[in-house]
Nucleic acid binder design. Sequence first.
RNA 1: GGUGAGGUGGCCGAGUGGUUGAAGGCGCACGCCUGGAACGCGUGUAAGGGUUAACAGCCCUUCGAGGGUUCGAAUCCCUCCCUCACCGCCA
Length: 433
Amino acid sequence: MPDRFRMHDLRWIREAPQDFDSALARRGLQPLAESVLDLDARHRQVQAELQEMQARRNEASKQIGQKKKAGAEAEAQALMAEVGQLKDRLAEAEEQERHLGEELEGLLAGLPNALAPEVPDGPDESANEVLRAHGEKPIFDFAPKEHYELGEALGGLDFEAAARLSGARFVVVKAAIARLHRALAQFMLDLHTREHGYTEVQPPLLVRDHVLFGTGQLPKFGEDQFRTEEGYWLIPTAEVPLTNLAADQILAEEALPLRFTALTPCFRSEAGAAGRDTRGMLRQHQFEKVELVSITHPEGSQAEHERMTACAEEVLKRLGLHYRVVTLCSGDTGFAARKTYDIEVWLPGQGAYREISSCSNTWDFQARRMKSRFRPVGEKGTRLVHSLNGSGVAVGRALIAVLETYQRADGGIAVPEVLRPYMGGLETIAADG
RNA sequence: GGUGAGGUGGCCGAGUGGUUGAAGGCGCACGCCUGGAACGCGUGUAAGGGUUAACAGCCCUUCGAGGGUUCGAAUCCCUCCCUCACCGCCA
């Protein structure tokens, strides 16, 4: 009853239950409007009864105070007796109200975001829609190798050492490859802060439950995260702390949009990915990523989505990497997203396009969970902001793409032009070390 | 980790059981004043929810969070979280 933001807009469900159900259907879920509305109706009825009793109690209590002040002890006693009788029923109604409210909230909290109308329907990534591509697949006059072969040969990627320290899905990066990795991250951060208007942030990497709830990883996806014994969660992406910077805030309209970027490690348990991409550093428990987050006015989020995607693409353009942009279909779009563009970079060694960035507009989905609003000028009340996030881009995967794209016949790696300033002018990582 | 002090509205800051959702100030909005402004004066200014055609009215909840005492709690009790100060430890 107090201060309760629903995970989905109950007013919308009441007004257009069929729309709600078709939104669920696009996510492959059974209709729920009827049970939601039934629960909602029962909840509101109990709420009304409870509030009536509370009003009576408040009124009587007020009178008791006045009678006592006036010395009318007998009348005060009578009122106290009356309110005393209310007590049990009141407690019962409170309990019931809370129970129904939690049930409703629990039901809604586990439902994914509604998809944008233009998102294509489809069961999995095979139905994603290619929007555009940039550059061409590079041509080699030798058989291009995969990144781990190149990295190991150069003494820069050591999976065995990592396994001794931490097991599978970790890597030790060394020497010139480590520097290349660092150069990539610095380059991206500089681009976004200096040219794209993002504010650099160094957020906590350990966060509490409600923060993961706000961005949608909880309550459903706790298994994909690492948690400390103290109850902190290791962030799976900087999206989590950056987006939650707006949590519980009522922002000034003119402050929007907020644009944040951060270079952070990301931690993922990869619980459901057993056996996938086990070779190399494509899928690790720990990796670095430069993240982009925007908090926008509701009318500005679609344009911001395009802008953000362009910011991420710019990274790959300047690195001279071939990529394509796809719109994820309904079956491939994440829980919190209303619409997602993936940027897939071409990996010559692997001979495949692989995701290197994912840019999502969550609309008001996260804002509702986080209680993130702004105050419209000239209106009373508040409105929910929109939040977006995108990788700008995954540093480890960018390293893979650079290694595979810039490899030479002898196993050396040419350093992309834009990274040379970050590498002390180095033009080539030579095969002989 | 130890000791002490605190957590009140956009901000500062009163308030130790009864019209206090909360004095006062700042800020902000509107109006008056002015040639225009400053000053001054006046009015207004939390969020979430229920009811409703209504962003009119009425009602409920919220003074870090959660429990408890009471007819009634910002005010009393318990637990937790956080902030500040000093000590210890430490990149």
